[in-house]
């Protein structure tokens, strides 16, 4: 498969992830779409790693997953805490950034 196919696939997944963050109002679903974007990028990195026969791209993917995992744990902790205060995960209500 020429690598352009992988580029298209990865970009499609990425853009679907972006549309997801823009369309949904549920904070958790938005979070999941962010994970989807990260995975799209991982896919692309692996494809390039095969193209250049270089393993540092796969190491990058490894670290990407590390970061994603840490980020998810902290992010969900925050969402849970907000839920305790406001009893909702609607991002229109979670607008404390305004102040």
């Amino acid at each position: 498969m020429p690598v352009q196919y992988y580029i298209f696939l990865s970009m499609a997944l990425f853009c679907i992830g972006i549309m997801g963050t823009l369309i949904r109002r549920n904070a958790i679903i938005i979070f999941m779409c962010i994970e989807l974007m990260l995975n799209a990028v991982n896919l692309l990195m692996v494809a390039f790693s095969k193209m250049y026969a270089d393993s540092s791209a796969q190491v990058f993917v490894f670290f990407n997953m590390v970061v994603a995992a840490a980020e998810v744990s902290v992010g969900l902790a925050i969402i849970v805490m907000m839920y305790r205060k406001v009893h909702s995960v609607d991002i229109n209500i979670l607008n404390r950034l305004k102040h």
Binding site: Q4, M11, C15, I18, M19, L22
Partner: peptide
């Protein structure tokens, strides 16, 4: 608006990478 924004991004990146030089897998 969200869908259109995502779609535009897709098109832009595609157009940019269309003529990129790549090695065969």
């Amino acid at each position: 608006a969200g869908v259109i924004a995502g779609g535009i991004l897709f098109l832009v990146v595609l157009a940019a990478l269309k003529s990129a030089t790549v090695l065969p897998l």
